[in-house]
Design a protein around this nucleic acid. Structure first.
Lengths: 346, 346
DNA sequence: CGCTACACTGTTAGCGCTAACATCCGATTG
DNA sequence: CAATCGGATGTTAGCGCTAACAGTGTAGCG
């Protein structure tokens, strides 16, 4: 049946009484077509119900209009918020995102990146890449458009988007100090990530600045999980003097601190102030609503897409590494220490 | 530079001393190639570092190896869990997923579906489609491979994956009855969704079966959000007699019930049992850990991918509508009404 | 009035791969 | 031993679109 055939560019051209090339120019918003021809073509295309054939366009032009995104999983809201921002921006720019999950396997990540470089995609977003060392050099050398989001290591030959971890760590600590806390526990993230060190650094710097000597016993090592947060918090709560506030390196760990506090019978924030990092969904849903340091995750995803798209179209990036600001979000899990074991300040 | 040129099928063919067609057959796992030629080709391809060019393959074969997924957003863990399952299955089958978000706009959904039908994609997954009526007929008539996940309406001309909402509603209610509750409040989801009606139906049926007359005052109408759950719960808690248990149509609403209970000074589960539906991330993280009805979201996504892929390869589906079982997950937000003040276990 | 200049439109030649058919050759058969 | 067969391989012809170049007409200029 003729009526069920795919509508081609040639059909539109015939209807509009012009050549295929003119139609192509119109549909790709290229110059060199008079206003009324353009109008006529658009109407013909619409009337015919024309939809461009993406693979053909990709083959002919070398551009697929697709970007690859590689991330670990979607069950962690950290990733899904970044992805949400990336997709919204991509759609706004007329691109699509192809999703790749690595789970916990470096090998899968490497294989996927290799495949993506094979022309299915114009550019690449690597969110917190794991096995990055294995291919980043290759990508950089091939000049393949690629942007890292919140990469693990702090220096990289590729453009990247990150957030102000050190400043966030410092601001949060200063806020707790300002409330009157003098004994503040800290739970790190997985120390294999550069951002963990940065947040810790911010915490230490703020203490020093306030004239307090950081005490290594009050720093416990977590791995980003709620369970690790609970265990670290339990350790912290056994110390003497007991911290009046605990600052965890992400919201999940802070949720673990909530658990430890409940188990110990401590009221949050009355007897223990708790502070998270990220401002994920969980921080807003938790009880008590969590005071935390907001990372603009969606914005980071969106920004990364903008950067890749710029690279794809050959524009140079004004700054290769973009750092987005973090922001203190005060909710209900922090207050000034109740039974204040405050030392009179100078 | 010769060395930086893209490696083509022709290069592999030359290296292996065979024709391009033979290479193509080998790389696509097609029959008609002798074992040692196959081996030689594979080695040549590997040695050359060949990666197939996806758009070219798509243009020539009419198959892109990509599936489109349309869903509302990723900030709702309901969607991200489904998507996670879908991506894992797609990757296992050698396909990729292209992501499309509709936000809250029907118009965007329609536009995206139209584009996807334009050859960029072999098949389509519509997760809880909104504006479905506008194009489902078209899709069905074009016989374009498409599967609905948890569609709104209960009947559809397209294949679909859903879960046992009615049974879930009944089982949960029976469980509460079994604990000794006789006055059980219910909060619906958005009644524009078929599953809302089904869950309510299950609740009613279980009450009737137990010889209790459903009382309309104990059914409040929510819209899936935490806030609507809170408001509905407040209304329920003002009733006389006050319900000793509240069953919400999703976990978010149940989180809202937690809030209302706290505001009213009621202990969960000591003075009020709370039950959710979905078993999302939030149910596991909440305090107290939430008793809920588990929908196998990831499995639903995975199953839908299998179905689309079957359709793509021309196989008929054994059953057009697949219903996956729901499952009662007992945690710490429910107890018998008599129990004064139980301490939460695991 | 011939010639350039420019804006618009058309023509040609692929992009890299695979479907469909053609060919080859050794093995099987009566 | 010719006729036949079927597995392995090669050849041809696009898939639907766009880059690059080639025209065409009209306005502007000396």
């Amino acid at each position: 049946m003729q009526s069920n055939r795919r509508i081609l560019l040639a059909d539109v051209a015939a209807r509009a009484g012009v050549s295929m090339m003119t139609v192509s120019r119109v549909l790709n918003n290229r110059p060199g077509v008079s206003a009324d021809t353009r109008e006529r073509v658009l109407q013909a295309a619409h009337a015919a119900g024309y939809v461009p054939h993406v693979p053909a366009r990709g083959l002919a032009s070398g551009r697929t209009g697709m970007l690859g995104v590689v991330l670990a999983n979607l069950l962690d809201t950290y990733y899904s918020e970044i992805l949400q921002g990336a997709v919204m921006e991509a759609e706004a720019q007329g691109s699509r995102l192809i999703l790749h999950l690595t789970g916990t396997s470096d090998a899968r990540e490497i294989a996927q990146v290799a495949t993506l470089l094979g022309g299915s995609v114009d550019g690449l977003l690597l969110v917190l890449p794991r096995a990055a060392d294995h291919y980043i050099a290759t990508i950089a050398q091939k000049r393949f458009p690629c942007v890292l989001v919140d990469h693990r290591m702090l220096d990289t030959p590729l453009p990247a988007v990150r957030s102000a971890n050190r400043a966030g760590g410092a601001v949060a600590t200063q806020y707790l100090l300002g409330l009157g806390h003098r004994c503040i526990g800290f739970i790190t993230g997985d120390m294999g990530y550069g951002c963990s060190a940065e947040r810790l650094e911010g915490y230490r710097a703020a203490l020093l600045e306030a004239g307090l000597a950081p005490d290594a016993r009050y720093v416990q090592y977590g791995d980003w999980t709620q369970e690790s947060g609970r265990q670290a918090a339990e350790a912290l709560l056994r110390l003497d003097p007991r911290p009046t506030a605990i600052f965890a390196s992400n919201d999940l760990e802070a949720l673990g601190v909530y658990e430890a506090a409940r188990a110990t019978g401590l009221h949050v924030p009355g007897q223990l102030s708790v502070m998270g990092f990220d401002d994920r969904l969980e921080a807003r849903q938790a009880y008590p609503r969590m005071t935390t340091v907001r990372q603009p995750l969606a914005a980071m995803g969106g920004r990364a897409v903008q950067m890749v798209l710029a690279l794809v179209s050959g524009q140079p990036l004004p700054e290769p590494v973009v750092e987005l600001p973090t922001e203190l979000v005060v909710r209900a899990s922090t207050s000034s220490p109740a039974a204040a074991r405050t030392t009179p300040s100078p």
